[in-house]
Computed example of a mutant assay.
Amino acid sequence: MLFHAAALVLGAMFLYFGAEWLVKGSAGLALAFGLRPLVVGLTVVAYGTSAPELTVSLAAVIEGRGAIALGNAVGSNVANLGLILGLTALISPPRVEGGLIWREIPFLVGTAAVVPLLLVDGSMSRLEGALLCAAAVGYSVWVVRSARGGAAAGAPPSRPTPDERGAIEAAREMEADAERAGAPAGTGKARLALITVVGLGLLVFGGKVFVDGAVGVALGVGMSERLVGLTIVAVGTSLPELATSVIAALRGHSAIAVGNVVGSNIFNVLIILGGAALARPLEGSLGAMAVDLIALGAVTAFAAIAIRTERVIRRAEGVALLAMYAAFLVALVVAG
């Protein structure tokens, strides 16, 4: 049991460092080859921060443990909104950009709603996984084009739009986080390529160790794989988002957390669930997952309303989100 717990912690550390190095290297390479910060922030950084969830979910389904992959995606989304966004709002109420309200929030709600729809027949097929992955590509293209169109229609190029400023700010925060995680400083293409490869290697290794540790802990304490995926694995793979959001909030850049969390939730459904189902069909009963899916729907609806009705997510709303996450954990324990 002690060995598996140590593997869980070690795997989480490799996932954290791997994600930070991967984001720094890949984002740095994209900028070095001439992509605008806005495009990098909406694509490379967004995909990079979801890399731990994807790595762990793929490792789980390859080992025939689809319940962990499904629980990881759903649990991460509940944790992102309830724990991370709630904690961020409590530390420093974030101001929400108008572009995020009309562009990302409908996708946030839509991706949460599509999960139970895909599981009506008790499974998520490879075809459905492929459709989710295709939707992720289409969504990324649309987001980039919408943001670039808004920039062209707005202020002159010499004055960055809110989207552009937010992306630049996010890129700087990500780079600082990566360097705190040990990634070498510098902007040379060869060095950035090496950082990217090392980060990817750490992710793959960490994902394998993390899943093995999680399964060992589950068997040791009598927890189901689904419950482990919804709690230990979900929080563990959300460490990059948690660290980034809390640090940004403490430094007065809490607006970064909103886009980070919303984007991560969208990609968790489209890329993580889609990629996992594409690798191997996922089994999931709506009856067995009732608590999970109700929590996902409730916290998503509350967060969407809080974001759409006001330009600032208040501390009271942050407390409510944290309370909803705590209630979710209690419900999981009671339901067994």
Results as ranks from 00 to 15, higher is better:
V141P: 00
L90Q: 08
A152Q: 12
A112N: 11
V115H: 09
A79Y: 06
G149W: 13
V114R: 13
N80P: 02
W102K: 13
A130H: 12
A153H: 12
L127R: 15
S146K: 13
T111R: 03
R126Y: 03
A147T: 03
W102M: 07
S146Y: 05
A153M: 12
L81A: 01
F107R: 06
L83W: 04
L83E: 04
R95D: 07
R103K: 14
P94K: 06
V78P: 14
G75E: 01
L85V: 04
L119C: 03
V137M: 06
L131E: 05
A79V: 02
C133G: 11
G122V: 01
P116Y: 00
L132I: 08
V141E: 12
S125N: 04
L83I: 01
G75K: 08
P106I: 02
L81G: 02
A151D: 15
A89L: 00
P156F: 03
V114Y: 03
L90H: 04
G99R: 13
F107N: 03
V96L: 06
Y139S: 08
I91F: 06
G149S: 03
G75N: 03
L131T: 02
P106W: 08
N77I: 00
A134D: 11
R126T: 09
A112K: 05
L100W: 00
N77Q: 07
R95H: 15
G150C: 06
G86E: 01
V137T: 05
G82K: 00
V114K: 09
A130I: 09
P94F: 04
A136G: 07
F107K: 02
A135S: 07
W142Y: 15
V144I: 14
A134N: 00
P116S: 02
L132R: 06
R126W: 00
S123L: 11
G98A: 15
P93F: 05
L108A: 09
G149T: 03
I84Y: 03
L118Q: 04
V120N: 09
S92T: 14
V143A: 15
G150E: 15
V137S: 01
S146L: 11
S92I: 02
G110N: 10
I91S: 06
L85C: 08
N80Q: 05
L132H: 12
I84E: 03
G98S: 15
G154D: 05
A130T: 10
A79G: 02
I91T: 06
G86M: 00
R145N: 09
V115G: 07
L85K: 05
I105G: 08
